[in-house]
Design a binder for these strands. Sequence first.
DNA 1: ACTTCTTGTACGTTACATCA
DNA 2: GTGATGTAACGTACAAGAAG
Length: 215
Amino acid sequence: MATQMKELEEHMALISQMYPGVYTQVAPHQGEPKPRRRRRKNKGTDSGAAAAAEAKKRKLSDEQVRLLELNFGNEHKLESERKDRLASELGLDPRQVAVWFQNRRARWRNKKLEEEYSKLKTVHEGVVLEKCRLESEVLKLKEQLREAEKEIQGMTERIDGVSSNSPSSSSVLSMEAMDPPPFLGEFGVQGYDQDVFYIGQNSYIQGLEWMNLYM
DNA sequence: ACTTCTTGTACGTTACATCA
DNA sequence: GTGATGTAACGTACAAGAAG
């Protein structure tokens, strides 16, 4: 929970960087939140007709919303001069215009957060996929390595068998005779007959074929 | 420098309208 | 009729700037 809050704060900080002047208050409220005062209900306080008339007024007309949206599109911040001008153009109270902008900014931020979230989610899914692919590659390569080591061992044993039959050549080829074991320069081929370490080219290619699936 | 006031903002919440 | 959703409006905390 604390981590989620931290992530959210970081996210909001990011948005404030991306859209300066729109989200300016980054600092979270510290300590225990003070209890909020409950707003009393209107029901029963007014006469029925007055309440109905009041209720009718609540929703802004399509034209009012259209103009407000147009203004919001131009600039998310609302200077008092613009607020007053808009209010008189729309026949609204300046307070209503201010509230509309507040709520509109909140909706905009939420939408932005959702967009950011889905972008990050997509990236994350890609990364997870790549991780799986790399892990599978590691497994394949390990398998190849085991095969190669087995083959080397087999060949070493064959060489040993041969050398024990002809002692004159043992000093040249026996791996045990060398300490440390000759991993033979950088790639372990120097000093050996190329045929001794030959691994069929096809087996290597087959081993890499799976990679093409991802290319 | 300090306090106080004003204004604007984010955020959380409430009340109401609308729709399935 | 009812629950879900959208939104206008409100209450609160906070920051910044102006004024005294």
